[in-house]
Computed example of a mutant assay.
Amino acid sequence: MPVKNRFAELQQDITAWRRDIHENPEILFETHRTSALVAEKLRAFGCDEVTEGIGRTGVVGVIKGKSDTSGKVIGLRADMDALPIHEQTGVAYASKTDGAMHACGHDGHTAMLLGAAQYLSETRNFDGTVVVIFQPAEEGGGGGKEMCDDGMMDRWGIQEVYGMHNWPGVPVGSFAIRPGAFFAATDQFEITLEGKGGHAAKPQETVDTTVMASQLVLSLQTISSRNADPVDPVVVSVTSFETSSKAFNVIPQRVHLKGTVRTQSKEMRALAEERIKAICAGVAATFGGTADVTYHLGYPVMVNSEEQTAFAEDVARSISGQCDEAPIVMGGEDFAYMLEARPGAYILVGNGETAPVHHPEYNFNDEAIPAGCSWWAEIVEQRMPA
């Protein structure tokens, strides 16, 4: 089954929706305009039920098939939020909001799921129920968790859930997926080192927090090189180094560090936190200072279910003839919360040779729309055949 002809017919409309969303980006849970647009279109398509305000600003639509002898309920999820980035694409439909842009393609995800919802509402060529999920705040806000915490899975009886993300560097119209751990857990840490400030000409009278912090930044890298199993990935990155002094001749009393930890297993996630705290205490004690560590647990590891991944891969191959094994991704994805709640799978659809996501020159490739929409529709029609 190649790309569905109906999506070739709808591509111009879906592209127009996508570009309208692109022009009007909204960050985190502030997706009021986007959510209203989604709800309006779902009602116009004839969805059996449209509910707003799930997970604050999320939207859920229900589409019933021609029959329901299977009793199956499948969820399809797209994210709606943008990023706090100043756009530099130069396209005619560039962001009208300074400091906000769709730099990750969520405008494309939303538009493709809307296209699939229109087709499924028109044809209803399946036996069961589809729940289309439009989620806010994927980019650090945990909107997926909020929708689950609002009781979404139980309220609509969702049994399986599927997600999709565009991927630069993968040919347009092709797919990639992997079973098991896929996207990383994303945790954060803050470290405050306290020493004894003083004049830079008299270092012997101080406890130098700059030297202490410099040693700590290097020591934290031993978690990956000496504590971790080499086949269980972990990334520890210190991304901010601030001292309490702005003068050239003052050794600061205090240094504040920030960073992130990325892991692919619960075991490594726990080990990384344990070792960061232990290394901080040890390095601070060595220099005669103290270390206060605050550790923030972020998104969990996103784990694709074996059975649903195999099915999603077969569907992708039926559309494009190609579905490669995706690499492990050390970025985070809060679809992880939905996959913790229900079995399912997350797939990558090719965006072609474009700028990477989270880059000010990134732009979703509208040529990917027919393939993405077809995958959504085929997930439903093949999983719940009429």
Rank of each mutant, 00 (worst) to 15 (best):
M268K: 02
M268H: 03
R269F: 04
A270Y: 08
A270Q: 11
A270G: 10
L271V: 12
L271P: 01
L271W: 01
A272T: 07
E273D: 10
E273N: 06
I276V: 07
K277Y: 06
K277M: 13
A278R: 13
I279A: 01
I279Y: 06
I279D: 04
C280E: 08
C280Y: 01
A281S: 05
G282F: 05
G282K: 02
V283C: 13
V283T: 03
V283I: 15
V283P: 02
A284N: 09
A284R: 00
A284G: 04
A285F: 02
T286Q: 06
T286P: 03
F287N: 12
G288T: 00
G289I: 01
G289E: 04
T290A: 12
T290S: 14
T290P: 01
T290E: 05
A291E: 01
A291I: 03
A291K: 06
D292M: 07
D292F: 09
V293N: 00
V293K: 00
V293M: 06
Y295S: 06
Y295W: 09
Y295N: 02
Y295V: 01
Y295H: 00
H296I: 15
H296A: 11
L297S: 11
L297R: 09
L297F: 09
G298H: 10
Y299D: 01
P300D: 05
M302W: 00
M302I: 11
M302D: 08
V303T: 15
V303K: 09
N304E: 02
N304I: 02
S305L: 06
S305G: 09
S305H: 10
S305N: 13
E306M: 11
E306Q: 13
E306C: 08
Q308M: 05
Q308S: 11
T309N: 04
T309I: 00
A310N: 07
A310H: 10
A310D: 14
F311Q: 04
A312S: 05
A312T: 02
A312R: 07
A312L: 12
A312W: 03
E313T: 14
E313P: 08
D314A: 15
D314E: 15
V315I: 04
V315E: 07
V315C: 07
A316L: 03
R317T: 12
S318Y: 12
S318I: 14
S318W: 11
I319R: 04
S320P: 02
S320K: 07
G321D: 13
G321T: 13
G321F: 14
Q322N: 15
C323Y: 02
D324Q: 09
D324W: 06
E325A: 15
A326C: 11
A326V: 12
P327H: 12
P327W: 03
I328M: 12
I328P: 02
I328D: 12
I328A: 15
V329F: 10
M330D: 07
G331L: 01
G331T: 10
E333K: 09
E333F: 14
E333T: 04
E333V: 08
D334G: 12
F335C: 03
A336P: 05
A336S: 10
A336E: 03
Y337N: 07
M338N: 10
L339T: 02
E340D: 15
R342V: 14
P343Y: 03
P343C: 00
P343K: 08
P343I: 06
G344S: 15
Y346C: 14
I347W: 05
L348N: 04
L348T: 09
